[in-house]
Amino acid sequence: MLPKFLYHAPETIHEALELLNKYGREAKLLAGGTDLVVDLRERKTRPKAVIDIKRIKELNVLKYEPGRGLVIGATVTYHQILEYEPVRKKYPVLWEAVKTVADEILRMRATLVGNICTASPAADTAPALLVYDAVVETASKNGGRKIPIENFFTGVKKTVLEEGEMVVSVTLPEPPADAKGTYLKAMRVWSEDLALVGVAALVADGGKDVRLAYASVAPTPVRARKAEKVFREDGDIREKIEKAVELAVASVSPISDVRASKEYRLHLVKTFTRNALNRLLGVEAVVVA
């Protein structure tokens, strides 16, 4: 049973912005709805108007151009992303992350932009966007902004978006030529779960350009820049990995909740970071009996 609201389905960005302006904070944008409808039902939000942007054709762009990167429109579903071959080839971290989101039925409905706008600390796609240095493109009556993803999240379920502003797309620049990457996610079950911890790792430039980002270990998805810097320097690769692991742990601040304890999350950050880096940097894992 949802509370009453007015439903709008604009067909252009312009119309959507008119509506956003009209209702201000009392409007909620609807894409896949997999977060919004739940919040409505639980009375976590009681907007006057719900603005469905799925009928705005220009928001459903999903396009990769060599050199220019990948553009993901605001209404592109996870399913579309998984089916789009260039994503799997050029942005494997994103592809792997998307593959872990919820279940297949929800992935045919839910959108990546919706995921980042909800700004849950557990957003699976956020660490992937962080390691690809994605840029969020917005529109508003006053024009638009291009916001680096690292500046987009400001707290638990909070973003820099302002009243009357909407995300139009997310752009992932062309990744470095030799980039390899992975997304490791801890879940309570094998089937589907929110991330207890999500680790995105990308390695390029012959192992000098290493990027690490995390979900569910801080109020926002975070990038571990200090840990990344370790690989810019020379030295033994195993030592560097261990140092990076320590710095990664230092850059997160997980809490204990019903899903996992702080200690378990810290352990997962450690072990997943190490496993990802070992694999991507071609280091044989040492099996400790």
Binding site: D103, V189, W190, S191, E192, D193, L194
Partner: peptide
């Protein structure tokens, strides 16, 4: 059922 997990097909 988000946080009271019960087994699904892949489990």
């Amino acid at each position: 059922l988000t946080d009271y997990k019960i087994a699904r097909a892949s489990d």
